[in-house]
Amino acid sequence: MTDQPYDARYQGQQGYEGYDPYQQQPQTWPGQQQAYEDPQAAQQYTQQWQGQTWETQMQSPVPPVAQASAAETAYLPPQTPGYPAPAYESHQAAQAQPEPVVSAPSAGDDGAPTYGPATVAGNARITDAQRARLEGRSPIIEPGMQPAVLTALLGLLLSATAAIGSYALVVPLVVLQAVTAAGWFRLNGMWPARQGIALAFLGGLTADVALLAADRSPAAILGTLGVWVLLSLVLQLRSHAEPDERMYGLMATVASAALAIVAAGYLAAEADAVTVGAAAVAVAVLARAVPLPTVASVVVSLLAAAGAGVAVGGMTGLGASGALLGAGAAVCALIGHRVASYDYPSRFVHFTAGVALPLAAAAPAVYVLGRALA
């Protein structure tokens, strides 16, 4: 044993009473610099960047805003690199009145109302259907006279070519099927949908070819429908969209293909029935476009179609029974007309679905009533 103290570090310290193992003592590891007790001395050895870095060169300084409220910083204009930030005192003045001011819509070139851009405090634009509901009006816009004239022209072409022969009837029928396929997808808000439109139109063409090859047997329509439902399912299974979107696309594709294929019923029906039915649809749609109350317009449309059926039926072998055929075709045509008017559709919908759906929806009635009355 030795008479020297336990540790040389404690030599010369007053009041040393022995080593306390729990007392925290400063330790210095090999290679470690001793900590600076003086903050000013520590700052002398702290590395500070005095030059410009990439961030200080590319980004313009933003002046600090003391105690900025949430309303003042809700929206700041974009800052362009290399230029000072623009003043936003005018924005602060605008925030004092946060309520958006909705001005009356101005008329565009095509007569449709147009709306201004979104405001800073929020998007004040609403759709035509929403505005109509807020004002207590019906959110339904019918195609109008111009699409009705096109429908009547296409119907008269079907009526005239049916009297000539099946191959002449194919020409306006193909146009009807193409407009039906495109209009249905646009009516459902799916645009562009090239694959679905092409598939539906191809189904209509296949039904036409099958009918001509099978001597206008209706079994060709049913067979084409079955095959095209399967093809539509395969097309949607190959899609990488979300499940809900794929289901929505599947229903739209199947419905569009079914309408295009069902329109081939004009080719399967009797020639006299097509002549009477297509002419009746043309007259019914024109009468429906006359600005009258809805109930009165529907009644006038059905009466006009029945009268056209009698008149055209007198020139064919149907005679007075053409009134029943014309009225039945008009009922289906008005249903198609109402579908094309759903929830403020666009002008493109009016000039596609609004033109084609009345004639496409009337095809089954023309076939069934034509077979029954022949």
Results as ranks from 00 to 15, higher is better:
residue 168 A to C: 02
residue 170 V to W: 02
residue 172 P to K: 09
residue 172 P to R: 10
residue 174 V to M: 15
residue 175 V to H: 07
residue 176 L to G: 04
residue 176 L to C: 11
residue 178 A to F: 15
residue 179 V to R: 10
residue 179 V to Q: 12
residue 181 A to G: 00
residue 181 A to D: 03
residue 181 A to L: 02
residue 184 W to G: 01
residue 184 W to T: 11
residue 186 R to N: 07
residue 186 R to V: 06
residue 188 N to Y: 02
residue 189 G to V: 00
residue 190 M to C: 02
residue 191 W to D: 01
residue 192 P to H: 08
residue 192 P to R: 09
residue 195 Q to F: 04
residue 195 Q to I: 12
residue 196 G to K: 05
residue 197 I to F: 00
residue 199 L to P: 04
residue 199 L to C: 03
residue 199 L to N: 08
residue 199 L to Y: 02
residue 202 L to G: 13
residue 205 L to T: 15
residue 206 T to P: 03
residue 210 A to W: 06
residue 214 A to M: 12
residue 215 D to M: 03
residue 215 D to L: 05
residue 215 D to N: 11
residue 216 R to F: 07
residue 216 R to Q: 12
residue 216 R to H: 15
residue 216 R to L: 09
residue 218 P to L: 10
residue 221 I to W: 01
residue 223 G to V: 15
residue 224 T to N: 04
residue 224 T to V: 13
residue 225 L to K: 06
residue 226 G to Y: 12
residue 228 W to P: 02
residue 229 V to Q: 11
residue 229 V to D: 04
residue 230 L to N: 04
residue 232 S to T: 06
residue 234 V to M: 14
residue 235 L to D: 13
residue 236 Q to A: 00
residue 237 L to C: 10
residue 237 L to N: 10
residue 239 S to W: 04
residue 240 H to T: 14
residue 241 A to N: 13
residue 241 A to Q: 13
residue 242 E to L: 13
residue 242 E to F: 07
residue 244 D to A: 15
residue 245 E to V: 12
residue 247 M to Q: 11
residue 248 Y to N: 12
residue 251 M to D: 01
residue 253 T to S: 00
residue 253 T to N: 05
residue 254 V to P: 01
residue 254 V to H: 04
residue 257 A to R: 00
residue 258 A to S: 14
residue 258 A to N: 08
residue 263 A to E: 12
residue 264 A to S: 15
residue 265 G to D: 06
residue 265 G to H: 07
residue 266 Y to V: 09
residue 267 L to A: 07
residue 267 L to Y: 00
residue 268 A to F: 07
residue 268 A to H: 06
residue 269 A to D: 09
residue 270 E to G: 13
residue 271 A to W: 03
residue 274 V to T: 14
residue 274 V to R: 08
residue 274 V to Y: 06
residue 275 T to L: 07
residue 279 A to W: 07
residue 279 A to R: 04
residue 279 A to E: 03
residue 280 A to Q: 07
residue 282 A to C: 00
residue 284 A to Q: 03
residue 284 A to F: 02
residue 285 V to S: 10
residue 285 V to M: 10
residue 286 L to Y: 05
residue 287 A to R: 11
residue 288 R to K: 09
residue 291 P to K: 14
residue 295 V to S: 12
residue 297 S to G: 15
residue 298 V to K: 13
residue 299 V to L: 11
residue 299 V to C: 08
residue 300 V to C: 14
residue 301 S to P: 02
residue 304 A to C: 11
residue 305 A to Q: 07
residue 305 A to K: 01
residue 306 A to F: 09
residue 307 G to W: 14
residue 308 A to I: 11
residue 310 V to W: 15
residue 312 V to A: 06
residue 312 V to G: 12
